[in-house]
Each structure stands twice: as structure tokens, then as C-alpha cells.
Computed example of a mutant assay.
Amino acid sequence: MNRVVHPIEQESFRRLRARLDTSHFPPLTRAVVERVVHSSADLDYASDLVMDEGELARAHTALHAGAPVVVDVEMVAAGITRRETVCRLKDAESGPGLTRSAHAMRLAYEQVGPGALWVIGCAPTALEELLTLDASPALVIGLPVGFVGAAESKAALRESGLPAVSNVSEKGGSAVAAAALNALLYHTVSPEENL
């Protein structure tokens, strides 16, 4: 089923491209950058985001083959418009040295196992916990926001060697994390783009 793009969204992307040249990015990277910038109206994401086209291509394939999508909070789930997600935050409990967000990652991993796409837009502790699991993710979209632990958790994600979309700064959030996943959902790969 083809996605119908509303005229307001079309005009928004036209204006975005008039202000930001994304033509030098490879196709999936460009899709993620544009969708994140569109969701935030923050052009600086074009130079703040960190990702690899080959990893995005493999994640795109896994996503469209039905790999599970795990989110850290319901706000991320609400932003992912064309896919069911797993969010275990309601079932999680905090304890000594463990936040609810971290516990939710453990519960989600027990449910979905390896090979999922993980979308974290709120809690740095969720991202930190994911890095301790043997999740073998198809992709980690690690874009938590905040002044405590956000930049550090994203740096740890990049250092982990896991396939990832992250950013260098403290900014992020549910809307941009969902936007990055939506970019992969919405993007149709032409034959010459296959890696």
C-alpha cells in the first residue's frame, strides 16, 4: 500500500530542501536526515547525526522483512505510524541501580530476542541498558534527549560498534527517534540503491 503524502508535508519538505542541501547524502542517510530535520525544524541535525549507509540498508531490509521494533516509551510508539511496536515500560519496575526504562529494555529483549530494531528517544538509561544486553540488533536508533547521560550514552552506542543512528549533542527526543524509524519505513529502495 502506497503512502499518501499530504500537501502540507510536501510543501514542508520543499522548504526544507530549499534551506538545506541534502543531495550529497546517500539515499537512506538522506531520508533519515530529512525526516529528523522535518520533525524538529532543526537544520543542525544534518551535521549532528551519525549513521552508516550500509547499516541503514541492512536495517531497512530487516524492517521490511518484519523484524520487531522496540521503543523505550509510548511517545516514540505514537510517532511510528505504520508499524506495531513493543514497549514494556508499563510492565517495568525500578530497583537499586535499575531505572524503569532500563528494566523495560530487559523485558523487551526477553520478549523479542535478537535482530530487532530498537528506537530510544527518551531515556539514556534505556540505551545504556541495551548496550549491556546481547541483543544483536538490526539497528539501534539511539536519540535520547537530556543534560544527564544523553550525550554520553550516545557516545557509548557509537563506540559499541552496533549498527546505529545517533547524534553527538544532548538533543534528541521521542519525535526525532520516531522520525528516524519512519524514514526507513517510508523509503522505497530502487534497484540501484541495493547494497
Rank of each mutant, 00 (worst) to 15 (best):
S153Y: 01
A116K: 07
H64Q: 12
T132K: 02
I80Y: 09
V32E: 01
E53C: 10
A41V: 09
A77K: 04
D42T: 01
V32G: 08
G149N: 04
V189S: 14
P144S: 02
S101F: 02
L89I: 07
P96T: 03
D44Q: 05
Y186F: 14
S12Y: 07
V112R: 05
A183Y: 05
I141P: 03
E159P: 01
A126Y: 02
V165Q: 02
A77M: 11
L185Y: 15
A46M: 10
G54C: 11
P144R: 00
S94L: 01
R14T: 15
V73G: 04
S169V: 06
A126G: 10
E192F: 12
S169G: 14
L89W: 07
P144M: 00
V168A: 13
F147Q: 02
I8N: 14
S40F: 13
L20N: 15
V36I: 10
I80L: 14
I80R: 02
V119D: 10
V32W: 02
M51C: 06
S23V: 14
A150R: 00
L20Q: 15
P163M: 11
E9W: 12
L185T: 13
P163E: 10
R35C: 12
A92L: 07
R88L: 12
Y45T: 00
V32T: 01
L89C: 05
A135L: 09
A177Y: 07
S160A: 07
A104G: 12
L131Q: 07
D134F: 02
T29D: 03
S174C: 11
P124E: 04
A18W: 02
T22L: 15
M105F: 06
S166W: 00
L139Q: 11
L157F: 01
G97M: 02
E55T: 06
R100G: 09
H64F: 14
E84P: 13
M51L: 13
P163Y: 10
L157T: 00
L195C: 04
G172S: 04
S47C: 11
S190P: 01
A77W: 08
T29C: 14
A123T: 01
G79S: 11
L133M: 11
Y109C: 07
D91A: 14
M1N: 12
Q111S: 09
T61M: 09
L43G: 10
F147V: 06
P26W: 00
F25G: 08
S40M: 14
H24V: 14
H103W: 06
E128P: 03
R35K: 13
V165C: 05
A41K: 04
K154E: 00
N182P: 06
A92S: 04
A164S: 12
P68I: 05
A177E: 12
V4A: 15
H103G: 04
M75Q: 09
A135F: 10
P144L: 00
A46K: 15
V5G: 05
G173M: 08
A77Y: 06
K171C: 10
I8H: 15
R3W: 10
A18N: 08
S94G: 08
R35S: 15
L117H: 08
R3D: 09
P191L: 13
P163N: 11
A31S: 13
L130R: 01
T99R: 03
